[in-house]
Design a protein around this nucleic acid. Structure first.
Lengths: 228, 228
DNA sequence: ATCAACAATATTGTCTACATTTTTGTAGTC
DNA sequence: GACTACAAAAATGTAGACAATATTGTTGAT
């Protein structure tokens, strides 16, 4: 789906990829416990390799490891949530900017093809595919922008955004409206930098506006605060 | 020196930190082999933990792991080098922007104190400390900008920049002139966003200009190309 | 009946031994 | 003398066992 070339990575990266996808698709909720033995059995690898993958995911901020307690899906606080969305706006603006400088006419159909996939998944009510494709659209933009570094950053930002929306969304939302993606493609085709960046920033603001970042959600783990 | 609070991380992160520092200080050259047993003995930890650390460093792009062959310090190509510097300019510009919005007068002396350390190390010819402090200045800016995410990205960018300068520098250079850091502090104190960003971008451009990114340096590993 | 101390269980953390693979060294053959 | 085939060595990859720690369940005393 995304990353057309770098699918040939190491075995550890594959475990990370699958856990990352589960988090991005919200199949793994924040605070969920990740038992090593269980993961080892699911992925049919050794526990040592699971521990390697968990160490990587921890350094990415997706997983929290408590010594002698285990690994849990991270639960970002409000300040981190604001930070992620702030940085994401900056990064995606740079992606759009660079994309319009570099994209060729021959690549535009790639965006449209992805969009039609999104619309199709949306119409048939496949929420899992919708979430995956929705994030994938943003990653596709970064890939076509030709900066593997920006791609990596955005990858990180998107997974964290998923965690954040899972925690702080007030209404039950559609994650990313395909309509706005369509409008963005149109501006890209017209090589309209300012217009495209405007749409992108508004788009991200819409997602952020649906969140309730006013109060800290007490972490699941020390629920002493939660139940007093 | 940097990150005042997050010094209390896990044991794996500490191994990563030390290897990262060795790379950033250019004590470990690109392509250098990293034997697991050797690292385990040096750091007095188990091989399993070394493998975790190497997996993390690989995901950060600092280390390349070849299955059944071992881990090596990464050797970024010219395209990746350009990418890193391009993104770094963007990121550091955002850091400066945000920093000027958020920094308090009481925090300015922190920058000056760091600068005086840089000058001192530079004068006494301590290249190792100079390199460390020079990168640390940029990290301090990111920390004071109040975005842990930008901090993490910049951390990654700086270590990669070190690798790149180690490979592609044409002249023997001073990595970051303290003078430009001083000028930057002055603009920050004056809350001059445009001026500060100008200095930062020029500063990074100077570093990049000292590199020879015209031709690909053949990787040490498959030296068939190198010796034909 | 409630609470505290203690035992049992489960999970993480670590170490050791072994299999696999790659590299290096050596002997044999033309 | 050079090249091939094989053997030895070294390093990685993996599995299993064991120790340390936290959680849960149980027993007993007040």
């Amino acid at each position: 789906m995304y990353h057309s070339k770098e699918t040939v990575t190491g075995p550890t990266a594959e475990i990370c990829e699958r856990i990352w996808l589960s988090i991005a698709e919200k199949r793994l909720r924040p605070g969920a416990r990740l038992k090593e033995e269980q993961l080892a059995e699911i992925f049919d690898v050794s526990r040592a390799r699971v521990r390697q993958a968990l160490a990587v995911l921890e350094s990415d901020g997706l997983v929290t490891i408590v010594p002698n307690r285990g690994a849990f899906v991270a639960e970002p606080g409000v300040d981190e949530a604001r930070d992620v969305f702030h940085v994401r706006k900056q990064i995606e603006a740079r992606v759009v900017e660079r994309l319009i400088d570099r994209i060729t006419d021959a690549q535009i159909p790639l965006l449209e093809a992805h969009l039609s996939q999104e619309r199709e998944a949306d119409q048939r009510g496949d929420t899992s595919a919708t979430i995956r494709l929705s994030g994938g659209f943003h990653l596709l933009l970064a890939e076509l922008a030709g900066s593997s570094f920006l791609f990596g950053i955005l990858r990180d930002l998107i997974s964290r955004s998923s965690l954040i929306t899972a925690i702080y969304r007030s209404q039950h939302l559609h994650n990313c409206g395909p309509d706005e993606h369509g409008a963005l493609i149109e501006r890209i085709r017209a090589r309209d930098k300012k217009g495209a960046m405007r749409i992108m920033l508004d788009h991200l603001q819409h997602v952020e506006d649906e969140l309730d970042l006013t109060e800290e959600i007490p972490t699941t783990r020390d629920l002493r605060q939660a139940l007093v």
